[in-house]
Amino acid sequence: MAKKAAAEHLVMPYLVSIPCNFSAGPYMGRLLREMKEHKKLWGNKCPSCGRIMFPPRAVCGQCHGVEAGDWVELSDKGTLFAFDVCYYPYIDPTTGQPKPVPWARGVITLDGGGALIHFIEPPDPEKLRRGMRVQAVWREEGRMGEMMDILYFQATEEDKK
């Protein structure tokens, strides 16, 4: 039986792109400015349940709309709470360029309260462990006021020992 030639697909490249701006407002705005200008992390405290909110917010969601209270300077050191190492090809959304595999990200519980998610270096499953002590490595030049002003978290000197 003669084979039918497969139909050639029509291909139409199409890129969706809309310039936009974004208002950070007083809460996110203060955090991002502190990161850019002073390499510091700030959160705020719920006056009702007392938890430290990072990222800082206008209200505590868990206390159903209680307005945020005092600002608290947070540590850039913490404990690796959860992590994963990934091996699939990954396009960095900020550059459009492929990022070398493997790479690791983790949830870091900051000393004194608050938690964030960031890259963990090196992405070596032999060396990473839950509970390890980690600290932020900041971008020295050209900070923009964004989370990538921290390049990644890595093991603290004390943890390496």
Partner: peptide, 19 residues
């Protein structure tokens, strides 16, 4: 035009009012 507000601040204002 609410250029100084993150949308959460607008939402807090209007929902606290109605609640």
């Amino acid at each position: 035009q609410k250029r100084e507000e993150h949308l959460t601040e607008t939402l807090v204002h209007v929902t606290k009012d109605v609640m």
